[in-house]
Structure formats: structure tokens, C-alpha cells
């Protein structure tokens, strides 16, 4: 369970938002909304522990993040703006590295191939990432979702960007299934996605300074 109390976020010397609180129970999906520049990405990065809040705490299962960083990271999957792909490696090599670096030792090559095929990159397994299109690059990052089912908390920054209609529907289905299985999802998106059950909405603008 992810719990946030009285969170304030400082960017440069400007305070983006303050007094933000949220609770995420197993099975919940939360959509972080608000206009550009209100601090959606900053909030997601605070939730992952990449940045330290100016005030307030983020805690996982009742323990503040900074004390249990590695345990928390075992439970977290984060997809940022950048796809984290190296241009000189193939899609498969990138995915295998991402899993190994994240600490998923049990993921083997066959599982990576299956994940890439499932997301529609079966023909591009061995192509270097630099020749992939934006949408395909996004998919390589998303392929990790299929390998991260053991990680309960998914924090996704604009996962639908650059995807076509089919892929958007597939992804929405995957996210819904993860929540139905007791997982948690926090995401930002500017486009409407066909979720089976509409996610809760948190408007960061309400806490803006």
C-alpha cells in the first residue's frame, strides 16, 4: 500500500504543489491529472523515490521510502518519459538488460522474446533500437510490464504516448488486469483510454501554489 501525506514539491526555487495526500490500496488505479507544468511528472518521480520531497512523506507498507529504498524498488515498476533504450543495442538486448539491471534475476531470454512478441515487436527483436519508430521504442519499454507482474506497484508516465489505437486498447486491458489481480497503477495521460473500469482521478492542480 502506498501512502502519501502532506507532500510538497519544490522545483528550482518554485514550489509546485503542497499539502498533497493520497492513499493507494491494492487493486486501485489512479490517474494523475492537471494542466501542463502543474507537477505531474514531478509527483510520479516523488512516488518512486527518485527525488526527495521538500516536505511530507511517501511510505510503502507503512515504512517511509528513504528507510526501505531497496525493498520498495523490488515492488516498483517505473516507466518514465525516456524509454531507457540504448541505440546501439537491439530491442531484445535492451529488454534483457533492463530486467537484469532492475534485479529481476529470474527473467530469461525466452521470457523476453515472448514479451516482445506479445507487444507486437516479434519481427524487430534483433533490430538496433536506433532504427525503431517512436511507438516501437515505447513498446520496448512497455514490454517490461509483462515481465513485471511480480511487482505490485506500476508508476507510468504517459504510457499511451505514440501508441496506435490497438496498442492503447491492449495496454488499457493489461493495466486493468493488473489491478484486478491486486496490483496498483499510478499513471498520467493526456488521452482517453478505454479502461474497463474508469480510474480514480487526482487533480494536482488542486494543490498547486
Amino acid at each position: 500500500m502506498l501512502e502519501v501525506t502532506d507532500l510538497a514539491c519544490l522545483k528550482g526555487d518554485r514550489l509546485l504543489f503542497r499539502g498533497l495526500a493520497l492513499r493507494l490500496a491494492p487493486g486501485a488505479m489512479l490517474r494523475v491529472a492537471g494542466p501542463n507544468g502543474v507537477g505531474k511528472t514531478s509527483l510520479l518521480r516523488l512516488l518512486t523515490g527518485l527525488t526527495e520531497p521538500e516536505a511530507g512523506t511517501v511510505s510503502w507498507c507503512g515504512v517511509p521510502l528513504r528507510r526501505e529504498r531497496e525493498n520498495f524498488h523490488r515492488a516498483l515498476f517505473y516507466l518514465g518519459h525516456a524509454a531507457a533504450l540504448n541505440d546501439m543495442l537491439s530491442a531484445l538486448e535492451n529488454l534483457r538488460f533492463a530486467c537484469a539491471a532492475a534485479g529481476d534475476e529470474e527473467v530469461d531470454e525466452a521470457a523476453c522474446v515472448r514479451a516482445l512478441e506479445r507487444i507486437g515487436l516479434g519481427a524487430q527483436l534483433d533490430l538496433p533500437a536506433r532504427v525503431l519508430s517512436q511507438g516501437q521504442r515505447r513498446r520496448v519499454g512497455l514490454a517490461r510490464l509483462f515481465l513485471a507482474s511480480a511487482r505490485p506497484l506500476w508508476v507510468l508516465d504517459e504510457p499511451f504516448t505514440a501508441l496506435d489505437v490497438h496498442a492503447v486498447a491492449d495496454l488499457a486491458g493489461t493495466l486493468g488486469a493488473h489491478c484486478a489481480a491486486g496490483g496498483m497503477v499510478v499513471l498520467t495521460t493526456h488521452q482517453e483510454a478505454p479502461f474497463a473500469q474508469p480510474p480514480d482521478v487526482l487533480d494536482v492542480g488542486r494543490y498547486a501554489c
Binding site: A8, L15, G19, E54, A55, A208, C209
Partner: peptide
């Protein structure tokens, strides 16, 4: 937007 100020 109001003038930003410190929360804490």
C-alpha cells in the same frame, strides 16, 4: 496562479 511560497 498565486505567488509561490514555501510550504513548510
Amino acid at each position: 496562479m498565486t505567488t509561490p511560497s514555501r510550504a513548510v
